[in-house]
Design a protein around this nucleic acid. Structure first.
Lengths: 140, 140
DNA sequence: TCTTGCACCTCTAGTCGCTAGAGGATGTAG
DNA sequence: CTACATCCTCTAGCGACTAGAGGTGCAAGA
């Protein structure tokens, strides 16, 4: 029986040590067994689960969505319709976010280009911020 | 002397009432004068300031950045270099965010397309989440 | 064996930018 | 005068951690 310490689990999964404890505290990760000295002792499966969580977090899934995805993973005979729906919803979110960030980028570019590096009273950055009507894209 | 209530200021600026109070509490907006019955009484300048804040927030500027932008606006004889720097930094952030979201979108698309709508054990969504090595873009 | 020093433990509180709710006062229209 | 909306202050909560205090466990070198 190899014992994986929390530090080792953190290193292998890429999740920080306090975050591992946090995930345990919110029930995303089952409480592992403990050593004689009350230290957590993880299984390889726990490390995989942490890597799964980390990857999903990086892709911007919320904890509650991940909780659902994990329960699906735990029971592989279920239909994957929920997993599909969660991923699709996330995809739509991401597409919208990209669209709005592009509008925003255009706005910021106008601001920065217009700045003549003079005094504030001629500054387009401040001016545009003060008056939304000057925005090229009204979408925000 | 026209008196602008907090509700009116909120309506005109597009900032919610509790948020106006919050901005006052963190010193982003000067405490306005009060009516006999202790109710806030705003000036038109306060409403402009709130609109400025709202617009900057919509563009994703953090409160501390907005604080700096506001002090610049308050003293229009200063150089606008700081405003320019803040806007440029924000632009770079936005560009990076767009790039990473695009990688993410590609990832999610692969996941969703690969899903055969069968059972979880054949589901690409779950599979890809469990194994980062399957990602087309390693950039996340 | 002792000691050094890092990794671990629990617990609380803080982060950001609000938002929600309790419990009460004020202001206005009918 | 009575509804009723709006206002007031205050505290607590959100998500997803992060930081710090104060203490314990453990492995390796002197």
């Amino acid at each position: 029986m190899k014992k994986i310490t929390i530090g080792e689990a953190a290193r292998q999964s890429g999740v920080k040590v306090p975050t591992v404890r946090y995930y345990e505290s919110i029930g995303l990760l089952a409480a592992p067994s403990r050593s004689e000295g009350n230290q957590r002792s993880f299984e390889p499966a726990d490390v995989s689960r942490l890597a799964f969580i980390r990857h999903a977090r990086e892709l911007g899934f919320e904890i509650e969505a991940i909780r659902t995805l994990l329960t699906l993973q735990d029971d592989p005979h279920q239909s994957c319709a929920s997993a599909d729906a969660i991923a699709k919803a996330r995809l739509i979110e991401v597409e919208q976010r990209i669209r709005s960030l592009k509008a925003l980028k255009a706005e910021l570019e106008t601001m920065v280009e217009g700045c003549g590096h003079g005094r504030v009273d001629q500054c387009r950055v401040i001016e545009v911020l003060a008056d939304h009507g000057q925005c090229t894209h009204p979408h925000h």
